Amino acid sequence: MSHTIVDLFAGCGGLSKGFELAGFDVVAAYENWDSAIACYNLNFNHSAKQLDLNDVDAAVQEIAPMKPTAIIGGPPCQDFSHAGKRIEAGRAGLTESYANIIQQIRPRCFVMENVARAQSSHAYAVAREIFKTAGYGLTEQVLTASFCGVPQSRKRFFCIGALGEPDGFLDSRLLGKLSDREMTIRDYLGDELGTEYYYRHPRNYSRRAIYSIDEPAPTMRGVNRPIPKGYPGHPKDACSVNDSVRPLSTYERARIQTFPADYRWIGSKTDQEQMIGNAVPVNLGKYVAEALLDYLNGSIDNEQIANIESFRSWLKQEKKLASRSISDVISRLKRVNQFLELSDDADIDLYSMRLGRIDAFASQSPSVRSHLKRAAKLYLEFAQHTRALSES
């Protein structure tokens, strides 16, 4: 089954490329910066279009007919990041615009990415309330890229939502495959750089500037400067300044952001450096996408369980369950299906026996196992009831 994606604030395509490599079908992308759009369109079969995403109504009118499985994107982070002025105004309002687009289109899932500090911002608190009001369960995690297949110690906050799910629905999938150690540049690129040490300009000279390829790179920023003649050195530099130490090239910075070697770049050097620094590392996007895809392929949706709304009505009318209890049953039904796929004609005793043989299910508490089995039993009772009506 193909899962379609629309990417908002797509930049030069880091998040789109990660989702594409994971197996999603990226069908459209939107961005407001001409240079980033031109770069994006050199590298994908679909087109990125220019769209001011402050205009929520226009965005919804454009995107809703596509009926994407998920909407992904990272609203501009300058007002949240250490590199910005830390003032939540103007551009931070795009976070709320993103949330309103999600609320109106109601895709099955969404992924919002931003700098780590965004999680504690007022703008995110507003967006989070919009997501919850729209019925999304949220997984909220800060991931360090070097544990996710990226040779860079970049930290990024991800809010991943799914309709009708409990909060934390993706935590186990998202955290369960983290590497047990950080990836270094040498791990990823071998000796491709042709140097053991490189210079990365610090924000001020109280910070180190010379790094080894045998450690994760620091965050790739949107600026790239040569070694100044007056650089005083730092006690934590990997080595002292010498003729073999140099700044990274634009291409090398893109590689550390895990863009493919054949990714094509366009625009001025300044624009390219900014695009690379702003981008989600491709492999970090791929890591998140694989966790989401695993969830989508193992969970129940309206195509896998017919007439989910009929099931909801049956629970209310036949079982006299309250709305909250009905939501709990459906959420548990989706969860039990992640352990073992449930078909309409399954035998409940055989299904329960097979469930008990799955280590991940057996490790749940007795109460959780009981609730999950009850949800499966109720659904199978409903399926049997539905079949009897259709045969009469």
Rank of each mutant, 00 (worst) to 15 (best):
228 P>I: 01
229 K>I: 06
231 Y>I: 11
231 Y>C: 13
232 P>Y: 04
232 P>A: 09
233 G>I: 02
233 G>Q: 02
235 P>I: 02
237 D>F: 00
241 V>Y: 01
241 V>M: 14
242 N>H: 12
243 D>R: 09
244 S>A: 15
245 V>S: 11
246 R>P: 00
248 L>I: 08
251 Y>M: 04
253 R>T: 00
253 R>K: 12
254 A>G: 15
256 I>T: 11
259 F>K: 06
259 F>R: 01
260 P>S: 10
260 P>G: 04
262 D>F: 08
263 Y>N: 13
264 R>H: 14
270 T>D: 12
270 T>N: 11
271 D>V: 01
272 Q>Y: 02
273 E>S: 10
275 M>L: 06
275 M>T: 03
279 A>R: 10
280 V>D: 04
281 P>A: 07
283 N>H: 14
285 G>V: 02
286 K>M: 12
286 K>Y: 06
293 L>W: 05
294 D>Q: 07
295 Y>N: 11
296 L>K: 12
296 L>T: 04
297 N>P: 03
298 G>M: 03
299 S>C: 13
300 I>W: 01
301 D>F: 06
303 E>Y: 10
304 Q>E: 05
305 I>R: 08
307 N>Y: 11
307 N>D: 14
307 N>G: 03
309 E>Q: 15
309 E>R: 15
309 E>G: 10
310 S>M: 15
310 S>C: 14
310 S>N: 15
311 F>H: 05
312 R>V: 12
313 S>P: 02
313 S>E: 15
314 W>P: 00
315 L>D: 01
315 L>Y: 01
315 L>T: 00
315 L>H: 01
315 L>K: 01
317 Q>E: 14
318 E>G: 03
320 K>D: 06
321 L>W: 07
322 A>V: 05
323 S>P: 03
325 S>H: 03
328 D>E: 13
328 D>C: 03
329 V>F: 04
329 V>M: 05
329 V>A: 10
329 V>W: 04
330 I>M: 13
331 S>H: 06
331 S>Q: 12
333 L>W: 02
334 K>W: 05
334 K>N: 14
335 R>K: 15
336 V>C: 05
336 V>S: 04
339 F>Y: 12
340 L>V: 01
340 L>S: 02
342 L>Y: 00
342 L>G: 00
343 S>T: 07
344 D>C: 02
346 A>K: 03
347 D>E: 08
348 I>K: 00
349 D>Q: 11
